[in-house]
């Protein structure tokens, strides 16, 4: 269901590839496939759905907590060449850790072999993709943001329980969306909270797999030490909370390894 298309931002790319091929050994393919594997951890300890529903993590604020649901969306994987050319995989992938789906993203697109100074993706949707498209698969997954908040889609849903200061176990729903100030609704003020995750340089010589890791603990750690006693629910309309989530998310993703 995912809309996949390669946007070759410079028409000259094809000629560049031909030029590259002249210098490549015969056993190096001209185009390869790229796969993106997503795994999750809590400060280095692997997290999968089998670890859900048990209070076993301690966040930076010292709160013991569990995870019951984790879904997040990435889009627009981009390969950047040093000459400014980019190959944008104009699609998205909903990673649903709860149901073990979307953990492997294998867009149906050929990537020219060669050196890239960076590979990146967007956490969430940029505004164009967020508001100008209707995605039936995301609608079916109830991934929408209410129209009264500007519409579009969630970027992440992280839910579970934590032990509060009164030693009571209560729920939290850490949902990230584009920050919206509804004080003067229906006039809404927005602040972008999608962000780019850079995976770094890579020399693509064969079918390639990127193993991308998300450290869930980072969402509660840096630069904003998250206090679940105060910020545990009803966070979607909380503009300041959304900006803090955006800031904390900058450090959540990393490239674990590459294989090809």
């Amino acid at each position: 269901m995912k809309k996949i298309a390669a946007l070759l931002t410079l028409i000259t790319l094809a000629f560049s590839c031909s030029s590259d091929d002249d210098n490549q050994p015969n056993n190096v393919p001209q185009n390869v496939n790229a796969t993106f594997n997503f795994s999750h951890n809590w400060d280095g300890i692997s997290v999968t759905s089998t670890n859900f529903n048990t209070i076993q993590y301690i966040n930076a604020n010292g709160e013991e907590m569990s995870i019951e649901k984790l879904r997040h969306l990435i889009s627009n994987v981009t390969f950047h060449k040093s000459n400014g050319e980019t190959i944008v995989i104009d699609g998205y992938n909903l990673i649903d850790v709860t149901n073990d789906s979307g953990l492997v993203y294998a867009p149906d697109i050929d990537i020219p072999t060669g050196s890239y100074e960076n590979v990146s993706f967007t956490f969430g949707f940029n505004n164009d993709d967020n508001y100008n498209n209707n995605y039936p698969d995301l609608n079916s997954a109830s991934w929408n943001v209410p129209d009264m908040m500007g519409g579009g889609y969630h970027y992440m849903q992280l839910e579970g329980k934590f032990i509060n200061d009164a030693d009571v176990e209560i729920g939290y729903a850490y949902h990230t969306i584009r920050a919206v100030n509804m004080t003067n609704a229906p006039d809404l003020l927005f602040q972008d909270t999608f962000f780019t995750v850079d995976l770094g340089a890579v020399n693509v010589s064969n079918n390639i797999s990127f193993n991308i890791e998300m450290n869930i603990a980072e969402w509660f750690k840096n630069p904003n030490q998250w206090n679940l006693n105060i910020l545990n629910n009803m966070l979607m309309p909380n503009f300041d909370a959304q900006v803090m989530m955006y800031e904390n998310g900058q450090n959540a993703f990393s490239l674990g390894s590459i294989s090809q």
Binding site: N53, G160, K161, V168, I170, G171, A173, N233
Partner: peptide, 12 residues
């Protein structure tokens, strides 16, 4: 209850 959905708010 222990399995109440986290989206249930102000349960107390």
């Amino acid at each position: 209850s222990p399995t109440i959905d986290p989206l249930m708010k102000k349960v107390d």
